[in-house]
């Protein structure tokens, strides 16, 4: 799996065909919660791309060079969740000191991502599918890209339908869920792509 063509196929399949929110239901909370405005949705998406790519790199390295040599692969869940939590906090501190402008843009979203199941999900999928470190990073990036695409589209639709006349019991979350369901049908169309 180490050549460019396979990487591109992985990029398309992880971001569009098996979209992380619309077909795997990971990271639903931010998907439903932070999708009121395109601007915030895009910010959240960028932060997710940043964190997931970094986390899949770190988790891949730890799995390969610490857990495997010591024969303690069964501790992966515990190790990954702690590493991700520490990583997010560390990234936040680092950005605040070193890159204040980037921190301005991403800062508020970082703490929201810590227990986002997509981050842990990608790290575990990488291990389960026995991806190498580079492939794992590509998979992480593609998954996060898929999340960003989905959340920005949903935010766009929500901005449009905000003032529509909707039956009272369908106001709020039910409408958003129906929208997400219709988007999921649209994304089903990508399955013919590969």
């Amino acid at each position: 799996m180490e050549n460019v063509r396979d990487m591109l196929i992985l990029l398309v399949s992880a971001s569009l065909v098996s979209n992380v929110v619309l077909s795997q239901f990971l990271g639903l909370c931010p998907f439903l919660g932070v999708s009121k405005k395109i601007k915030t949705a895009a910010g959240m998406g960028t932060a997710v791309i940043f964190v997931i790519t970094l986390a899949s790199a770190v988790a891949g390295l730890i799995y390969r060079f610490v857990l495997k040599p010591l024969d303690i692969e069964y501790l992966q869940t515990i190790v990954f969740i702690l590493v991700i939590a520490a990583l997010v906090q560390f990234v936040e501190m680092f950005l605040r000191k070193a890159m204040p402008s980037l921190y301005e843009a991403l800062g508020v979203y970082l703490p929201l991502i810590t227990t986002n199941c997509a981050v842990l999900g990608v790290a575990i999928t990488n291990v389960q599918k026995e991806y190498g470190i580079l492939t794992g990073i590509v998979n992480g990036f593609a998954t996060a890209l898929g999340f960003t695409i989905a959340i920005v589209i949903l935010a766009g639709i929500r901005e449009k339908i905000e003032y529509n006349d909707i039956p009272e019991s369908f106001k709020g979350m039910p409408t958003v869920l129906l929208t997400a369901g219709l988007m999921a049908i649209a994304f089903c169309g990508f399955s013919g792509l590969l």
Binding site: F25, E168, S169, P174, T175, L177, L178, A184
Partner: peptide
């Protein structure tokens, strides 16, 4: 068939939250 696929999950949950809202209203 769509109900066992991904979109079905969203529709079922949408119906569920709508019922919940209706009860609350």
């Amino acid at each position: 068939g769509i109900f066992v696929l991904a979109p079905g999950a969203f529709f079922v949950l949408a119906a569920l939250t709508a019922i919940q809202n209706a009860i609350k209203i």
